[in-house]
Design a protein around this nucleic acid. Structure first.
Length: 115
DNA sequence: CACCTGACCCTAC
DNA sequence: AGTAGGGCCAGGT
C-alpha cells in the first residue's frame, strides 16, 4: 500500500471500515486493517482507534483481538462498557470470548475465496 | 541512528 | 489454557 499516505488519511480509512461493522457483529484488528488496505498492520487499527475523536461515535467496541477477546484489562471501564454494549447487541461471551463462527463480520466486498 | 512501546498476531511449547 | 518469543509497522525518545 502507498507509503505516502498521511496518518490522518490512514486513520480515516480505518475509521470508515469500523463504521461499516454492523450491529451484533465483531471484527479483529487485523481484519479491519486489511479491509482498509493495510495488510499485516493490526497495530495501525489500534493506533487509529486511540486517536479517534469521540464525536465520530465509532462502534469501537466491535473491534476485538484475534483471540476473540476484548483488548482491555478485565477491571477497566473500557472493558465493562465494550462488553455491555456488545451484549446489548446480542453478542454472547463464553468464558470471556466471542465465537467468531457466529459473530465475525463478513463484508460483502471481501475478496471471494474460491475453493 | 538505536532502542522501546503498543486497544496486535502467530506459532510453538 | 497460559506463556514466550518473534514478527510486524508506526511513533516517540
Amino acid at each position: 500500500m502507498s507509503a505516502s499516505l498521511s496518518n490522518e488519511q490512514r486513520h480515516a480509512r480505518i475509521w470508515a471500515v469500523i463504521k461499516r461493522i454492523p450491529r451484533g457483529r465483531v471484527a479483529t484488528y487485523g481484519q479491519v486493517a486489511a479491509e482498509a488496505g493495510f495488510v499485516k498492520q493490526p497495530r495501525l487499527t489500534a493506533q487509529a482507534l486511540r486517536h479517534a475523536p469521540d464525536t465520530l461515535e465509532l462502534p469501537w467496541y466491535r473491534v476485538i483481538n484475534a483471540q476473540g477477546k476484548l483488548s482491555f484489562p478485565l477491571d477497566s471501564e473500557a472493558y465493562r462498557r465494550a462488553r455491555s454494549q456488545l451484549e446489548a447487541e446480542g453478542v454472547i461471551f463464553v468464558r470471556g470470548k466471542v465465537d467468531f463462527e457466529i459473530y465475525r463480520w463478513r463484508p460483502r466486498s471481501a475478496a471471494p475465496v474460491l475453493d
